[in-house]
């Protein structure tokens, strides 16, 4: 099976984020990491390859820094990488990101494309599904299990409130992968060494530009959310905080 994994670099979970001066985006001088669900998507692709042989290709759209995500994926066992490298990719909505991916892989023949179910920055949860529609492929979302059959695959979709559903579907297909589908591996020293010699194709914005349209939605303003609650901050040494809190639990929350 030949599998493409779409990966995104996002600000680190506990990175302190600051707004830019225009209030339209964050200041870029923070630490980045791989979008967590994408890490699970990669792991699943590697496991499928180990079972059924084939190839795992990783793709990412973003500035030079995002190459780190691809390098890590190569070190974990991906065979090659495609990097759509340009600062402009950061500001693309899901629709155009999917269009850029579709244009970059037009000469390839994948059986499966995986994405994480959503990104930790925009959180649109749309890119994978849009990509499927652009390619004319079937898709399934929030996947917790994948089994290859004779003529297609059987996947386990997570539904809400603890419900699940198996779905049979033909290949090629796009799947959005849920965190926790597997246990992530670490890159080995040998893997990191080998990654240096693995192919990484760079795609410039100009090469996919003709496939892109105007963004159909625009972030007018980004801001720190308005508080809806009157939060009381309890301060002091731990023992004192514990005392104050116990008092609140007794007199105001009334659970003691």
């Amino acid at each position: 099976m030949k599998i493409l994994v779409c990966m995104k670099q996002v600000p680190q979970k506990d990175a302190p984020l600051k707004l830019n001066e225009a209030g339209t985006w964050i200041r870029e001088d923070v630490s980045y990491e791989v979008n967590e669900p994408d890490a699970y998507a990669l792991e699943e692709a590697l496991r499928q390859k180990e079972k059924h042989s084939g190839e795992v290709v990783v793709i990412s759209a973003g500035p030079a820094r995002s190459q780190q995500v691809l390098r890590e994926a190569l070190a974990k066992g991906a065979d090659r990488a495609i990097h759509l490298e340009d600062n402009a990719f950061v500001g693309l909505g899901a629709f155009n990101t999917a269009r850029a991916f579709a244009a970059a892989i037009k000469d390839e023949k994948f059986d499966l494309i995986f994405t994480g179910l959503q990104s930790d920055d925009y959180g649109y949860a749309q890119t994978g599904v849009i990509l499927a529609e652009l390619l004319g492929w079937p898709h399934a979302t929030i996947i917790m299990q994948i089994e290859k059959g004779d003529s297609g695959i059987k996947v386990k979709r997570e539904l809400e409130a603890g419900y699940f559903q198996f779905v049979d579907m033909p290949l090629p297909a796009v799947l959005t992968i849920q965190s926790g589908i597997n246990k992530l591996r670490y890159a080995t020293l040998i893997g990191i060494k080998q990654a240096k010699n693995k192919p990484l194709r760079k795609v410039a914005l100009a090469e996919v530009q003709s496939a892109l349209g105007g963004n159909l939605q625009k972030i007018e303003r980004l801001y720190v959310p308005h508080k809806t609650k009157n939060t009381q901050f309890l301060e002091g040494p731990p023992a004192e905080i514990a005392k104050k809190l116990a008092e609140k639990l007794r007199n105001e929350v009334r659970v003691l």
Binding site: K229, T231, P238, A242, K243, A246, L249, L256
Partner: peptide
Amino acid sequence: PIFEIADYAIVGNLFEIVPPLIGEVKKAK
């Protein structure tokens, strides 16, 4: 973001706060 919806917020190390809190809760009970 959890502080946006919290009624009581404690900015600090949970490993320092929770043990004395357990003590206080037990005492109160």
